[in-house]
């Protein structure tokens, strides 16, 4: 039995079942808190914890699913290419929106954690929370945060943006497809982008663009801000 649980078959099957069920629940209810990614993650954690199955066993299959994220990010070039004219026409608003988002992310995440008494290392770990995982980890390493904490917070941020990003945007009067995609992609990287792709392909394409550009912007801005604040 233990051998079966640590074979990739277990992690892959569990992930597919959990995600398909979560998707079904969301399609049935259209209730925003039932975001498929968040529901699938929580149900798998609950199952592993209650059956005492180590994460490492699950991840033998999990990492194979995660592998597909690589080519999926490359595939974001397709919706970007299809809408290239609309994007090029608005390159300035897109670039400035991302830079404004990157600066506000660094300052607000670190600032709030610092004001609430977070320790130095924890505050630093929050800095790249809106950036896609591989870039975020690199930034945390450089500034001396806790890498595993950053990795967890990046996922948390992504789920939050995916759960209520578009709804929040409408609430604050941001209604254009481009601006919504940019806002959710900049704040909630790939997980937010996945939600936007489900809403509208153009929004998803812009969100995908924001993943890369926000990563680049944050990487460049952090050392610069450190000169000022440090």
């Amino acid at each position: 039995m233990n051998e079966l649980l640590s074979s990739p078959l277990f992690g892959i099957t569990l992930t597919l079942i959990a995600f398909r069920s979560a998707e079904w629940l969301y399609q049935r209810t259209r209730f925003i808190l039932f975001n498929p990614v968040a529901v699938a993650i929580i149900s798998i954690i609950l199952l592993l914890k209650s059956c005492d199955i180590p994460y490492a066993d699950y991840n033998n299959g999990g990492r194979m699913i995660l592998f597909l994220l690589g080519p999926a990010v490359v595939a974001l070039a397709v919706p970007l290419y299809q809408r290239r004219d609309q994007i090029l026409k608005r390159k300035l608003p897109i670039l400035l929106g991302i830079v404004a988002g990157a600066v506000s992310s660094i300052i607000s995440a670190a600032g709030i954690a610092w004001l609430l008494g977070g320790s130095h290392k924890v505050v630093l770990s929050l800095v790249p929370k809106s950036v896609t995982t591989p870039i975020a980890i690199g930034i945390t390493e450089k500034i001396g945060g806790i890498v595993s904490l950053t990795a967890a917070l990046v996922v948390l941020t992504g789920c939050l943006g995916a759960i209520c990003g578009p709804e929040f945007c409408r609430l604050i009067g941001v209604r254009s497809k481009a601006a919504m995609g940019l806002a959710v992609g900049t704040a909630a990287h790939g997980i937010g982008t996945a939600r936007m792709l489900g809403e509208d392909r153009f929004s998803g394409a812009i969100a995908g663009l924001a993943i890369g550009l926000n990563g680049l912007a944050t990487t460049l801005i952090v050392p610069f801000l450190w000169l000022f604040l440090g």
Partner: peptide, 27 residues
């Protein structure tokens, strides 16, 4: 948990508002 969760959650909404409003204004 408090600085971590509050920082992450509030900042996520701040970023969406700042980016969304910036693009809306420039558009």
């Amino acid at each position: 948990w408090l600085p971590i969760i509050a920082g992450t959650v509030i900042s996520t909404f701040v970023v969406m508002a700042v980016t969304g409003w910036t693009m809306k204004y420039l558009d």
